[in-house]
């Protein structure tokens, strides 16, 4: 059992938790992920690590409440326990030798982009961050990004906060005006990462994307998380989750991500009804 030491709602659909898991906290690095189960009969949920406190023995996770499993997780309060928490899994984001980077986060993906930005900023790199959300209500981690970015651009789809538009707009502007980065690191919805890569490809700027496909064991056993990268089958859990964005077959990954859309919808409706009943 793993204790929820701290819980905070970042916006109506995104929650942050600090979980007491000292072995994981000791090893965790930006870019790696954990797998948790809220309850004994729960689904295994892979979540990329949003931060860690090695001394305090806690690992920070930030998750979007999208389906049954995350709804159940979100019903737990600080002081309560979750059944399982294993990690750190996957490979850390490579940051060695990077002097100037652009970090692009979209929605809850910003939670994962943050520790990467912090690490790069901490090792003296020049960090430009672009974070995008659907609207002001869904904005998260602005202050945290400010603290670890030499320049921060906030985008909203509807213009209710920051600039109006998608994250590729300021990226394109920067590249067009002659800005060059050692690397662009982007984490967010598949479709966003796909478009970021389309922009950076034109300027031949190395681009790392963080993939979060469906996954079960997370240790290189089930093969559910496979992706096509550079024409080869790769497994996000052991080969990733970071990959060279130019090589990832995004259309395939987008198609595969909807494999269980019907099941997920049923689970979501089931939980909504169940939890509503309990409230009434």
């Amino acid at each position: 059992m793993y204790k929820i030491v701290n819980k905070r709602e970042l916006n109506p659909t995104v929650t942050m938790m600090d979980i007491y898991a000292p072995l994981v906290a000791k090893k965790a690095q930006a870019g790696q992920f954990i797998i948790l189960r809220a309850d004994d009969d729960g689904e295994r949920i892979p979540l990329t690590i949003a931060g860690y406190d090695r001394d305090g023995g806690t690992v920070k996770i930030i998750f979007q409440i999208v389906g049954g499993a995350t709804m159940r997780l979100n019903r737990k309060s600080a002081g309560e326990y979750i059944s399982d928490f294993v990690g750190p899994l996957g490979c850390a984001t490579k940051t060695d030798g990077l002097k100037k980077v652009c970090i692009i986060g979209g929605g809850v993906g910003c939670a994962i982009a943050l520790p990467v930005a912090q690490k790069l900023y901490g090792q003296g790199a020049l960090v430009h961050s672009i974070i995008g959300f659907r609207n002001k209500e869904l904005l998260i981690l602005e202050d945290e990004f400010k603290a670890c970015s030499d320049k921060l651009t906030v985008m909203t789809d509807d213009g209710s906060y920051g600039r109006q538009g998608v994250v590729t707009v300021p990226l394109k502007e920067a590249l067009e005006s002659g800005e060059r980065y050692d690397e662009v690191i982007t984490i967010g919805p598949l479709i966003m990462m796909k478009f970021v890569v389309e922009v950076t490809r034109q300027y031949n700027i190395p681009t790392t994307v963080s993939m979060n496909p469906l996954m079960i064991d997370g240790t290189g056993m089930c093969g559910g998380c496979r992706l096509t990268v550079g024409g080869k089958t790769k497994f996000a859990c052991v080969d990733g989750p970071d990959f060279n964005g130019f090589e990832v077959d995004f259309d395939e990954a987008i198609a595969r991500s909807s494999m269980y859309a019907d099941f997920e919808k049923r689970q979501r409706d089931l939980c909504c009804n169940l939890f509503k009943k309990e409230v009434n």
Binding site: C222, G224, T228, T233
Partner: peptide, 22 residues
């Protein structure tokens, strides 16, 4: 044992293709 093997034929990434392990 480790990662499941696939045949390397077209279509192995379609929805509905599993490794036995998965």
């Amino acid at each position: 044992a480790g990662l499941p093997k696939f045949m390397g034929i077209p279509g192995e990434s379609l929805k509905g293709v599993y490794s036995a392990n998965e």
